[in-house]
Design a protein around this nucleic acid. Structure first.
Length: 688
DNA sequence: TTTAGGG
DNA sequence: CCCTAAA
């Protein structure tokens, strides 16, 4: 486990306070694996810092713009590097905000289940993974790129349109590049844009292409690549067409995560999915919730991801997010892993945990992995260049900003060496998703300081001044406002904070210009995750969706966010008053779809009532959010529904024929059960 | 961990 | 859906 400094450079981050775990939470519904992991986790804070710099430019007269552009264009690599380094340093100095060490880590473990399938019958939908999951808003691997380019496939970390898109929108309205942002699925849209940009800039062949060829295979192949850490942050490239080529990122160095593999042979189903867990002290609060959430949401996600490998460019220490795959290992002897449950969820995945555990090495995928790295590495600059800003003055005084990329702080991934590349990719994706998935908001940094007052004009803030442009930065932060409306505006928005000491993250942001106002952009609530979680066809609103975007009026620098982004966020009431213990939120309601009912009925007809675990395995093995208890409950309600008049029924109507089958099956099995009992009873009597 | 039931 | 007692 690597603990690292949380923040670096001018990046803000957010920490996720430890999620309280309910000791008892580990109960039945969650797969044992998940539970195990939960238990293992200690306190955990997820610190996700995503930062980026932007390209700030003023709509300008050609002259000025040309000047700038020209400069960039001519700059040689060395210069660029230097400049980048300088930039880094600046920001570093500027924002030391993150003093703490970060204990937080995100653990990704494989839940053993492969939640990928869309259907309950996993085997039947082998391609499930390949299907783009609409829900995967945040992170998307752009397979399209690979297809088109024939090579690089990138992991694009992006927030949903809301997250990044909004920020970009805000910043660069009217810029041509922006529109594309929101196209299609959030993730894909971003990826696509990326690609588009690449094409335009001709970068495809450059950095990206290179990376493709060289790195991919190796990183994973490294001997004991158990632990992969990306020192460098993962940057999310943004496309801005309007930016002069010259100023455009010379290379896609920024794109830290690049993987080309199309392969991802990872057999979808076989790949264990990973769960992200938070290590927490035994506080019980969000525990259950986390488990569940994670369980259902996160693992499912993973499978869909295709790839994305991280490489580190930075040597810097930064917040590290740790993702582990099936690693309860070290601390936990394997014997502790009884996984009976394995039967249910695991298929192949389980084994992995075993093997992989052995070594934990951290290997930083250095620049090498990334083609563009050459630059970064050459410079030795630890952190990738985020972006450069250029400003142009326009007559109408518009400030045009272009975000080159948003960076995600270091990710440390631990994964058994026996895991597949595809698994790795998914793990990374999950990790990133976890970071970004909680709902993000954008923070603006100016000279290392957080600009909190949303009401100030750019002019007032100084963002319009050219000299300050290089000090301009943007960060992605967790959206504190997730909690339900009943917030106490005046209170510091500590989410889970209450009980868990460590969980509280002190996020004293740097000196702020205007305390009190949140630096968050007035963006719409970001619901990045959508229902990507769902493996089911029927999409269920993810918790995130339910989040209200109530931005706390006063969002200070302090932001505590549950490790488990989404769910956690959704769940955690901001009310500090509420006893944490009480905070346990119930799972989101996910009505059974007709198809699910169908599957359930079919399974019960075959297996009978009373064998819910088997039913689960048989028909809902891939529906991670449906536990056997759920199935049992559903059956109960189905029976009830079947008995009442159609007028009394609510919700999505269930075909009468299905209900009839329910009744008949119920009758049949009840009878059978009764007979059985009678028989047993008689036998007993006989013996006596 | 599962089942079975009440809430 | 949640919570739990039992098994």
């Amino acid at each position: 486990m690597v603990l690292q400094r949380r923040l670096e450079y001018g990046f803000n981050g957010y920490q996720v306070p430890a999620m309280p775990r309910a000791s008892r939470s580990v109960r039945g519904r969650v797969s044992s694996r998940k539970k195990v992991e939960d238990n293992q986790m200690g306190a955990f804070e997820l610190l996700a810092t995503v930062a980026g710099k932007l390209l700030l430019e003023r709509e300008s007269s050609p002259a000025s713009s040309n000047a700038s552009a020209g400069k960039d264009q001519h700059a040689n690599v060395t210069d660029i590097i230097k400049q980048e380094q300088q930039d880094e340093e600046k920001s570093l100095k500027a924002e030391p905000c993150d003093q703490g060490s970060c204990d937080e880590s995100v653990l990704v473990s494989e839940p053993g289940s492969e939640g990928h399938n869309q259907n309950y019958y996993p085997k039947e939908s082998p391609n499930a993974l390949d299907d783009a999951d609409p829900g995967l808003a945040s992170i998307v691997t752009n397979s399209e790129c690979s297809e088109k380019n024939g090579c690089a496939e990138k992991l694009v970390i992006g927030s949903s349109k809301n997250a990044i898109g909004s920020s970009s929108r805000k910043i660069e309205e009217g810029s041509p590049g922006y529109g594309e942002f929101c196209e299609g699925k959030a993730g894909n849209g971003i990826a696509r844009q990326l690609e588009a940009v690449q094409r335009k800039t001709g970068m495809i062949n450059g950095a990206v292409a290179d990376s493709c060829s060289s790195e991919d295979p190796m990183e994973l192949d490294r001997k004991p690549p158990l632990l992969v850490s990306s020192d460098s942050s993962v940057e999310v490239p943004m496309c801005r067409d309007h930016i002069p080529l010259g100023s455009f990122p010379r290379r896609w160095d920024d794109v830290k995560v690049v993987s080309r593999d199309d392969d991802e042979n990872s057999s979808g189903c076989n790949q264990p999915s990973t769960i992200i867990k938070a290590f927490r002290p035994p506080s019980r609060i969000g525990d259950r919730r986390i488990r569940k959430l994670l369980a259902s949401k996160y693992w499912k996600i993973a499978p869909k991801l295709k790839d994305g490998e991280l490489s580190n460019t930075d040597g810097e220490t930064r917040p590290v997010y740790r993702f582990r795959k099936s690693c309860y290992t070290r601390q936990r002897s394997q014997r502790n892993f009884p996984f009976k449950r394995r039967k249910l969820f695991d298929r192949s995945s389980v084994s992995k945990s075993d093997g992989g555990i052995s070594s934990e090495q951290i290997f930083n995928s250095p620049e090498k992995s990334i083609n563009g790295d050459s630059i970064g590495s050459a410079s030795g600059a630890s952190s990738p260049v985020v972006g450069q800003q250029t400003s142009f003055r326009s007559r109408d005084s518009h400030v045009k900003l272009s975000i080159k990329s948003l960076r995600v702080p270091e990710l440390v991934i631990e994964i058994p060496e026996t895991e597949t590349v595809g698994s790795l990719k998914r793990t990374i994706l999950e990790a990133v998703t976890a970071i970004l998935g909680g709902g993000l908001r954008v923070g603006v940094l100016l000279q290392g300081k957080k600009v909190r007052d949303d009401n100030k004009t750019l002019l007032q803030t100084g963002i319009s001044h050219d000299d300050k442009l290089d000090a301009l930065g943007f960060t992605l932060e967790p959206n504190p406002a997730q909690a339900p409306p009943p917030l106490c505006p005046d209170d510091p928005p500590f989410l889970l904070s209450c009980g868990t000491p460590q969980s509280l993250t002190r996020y004293e942001a740097t000196p702020t210009l205007d305390p009190g106002s949140s630096d968050a952009s007035p963006d719409p609530p970001i619901t990045m995750l959508g229902d990507f979680v769902e493996s089911d066809h029927d999409s269920v609103p993810s918790p995130t969706e339910m989040l209200t975007d109530e931005t706390t009026p006063d969002s200070r620098a302090l932001i505590a966010i549950p490790a488990m982004s989404i769910d956690a966020l959704a769940v955690v009431p901001l009310h500090r008053k509420a006893p944490r213990s009480e905070l346990v939120q119930r799972r989101i309601r996910r009505p059974f779809s007709v198809s699910e009912v169908e599957a359930l009925v079919q399974a019960v007809e075959k297996l009978g009532t009373g064998r819910w675990r088997d039913v689960k395995l048989r028909a809902f093995d891939n529906a991670n959010h449906r536990t056997y208890v759920d199935l049992k409950d559903k059956w109960k309600t189905l029976v009830h529904t079947a008995r009442i008049s159609p007028q009394q029924r609510r919700g999505e109507p269930v075909p009468q024929d299905l209900l009839d089958r329910v009744l008949s099956a119920h009758a049949y099995w009840s009878k059978k059960q009764a007979k059985q009992q009678v028989k047993q009873h008689s036998d007993t009597c006989f013996l006596l």
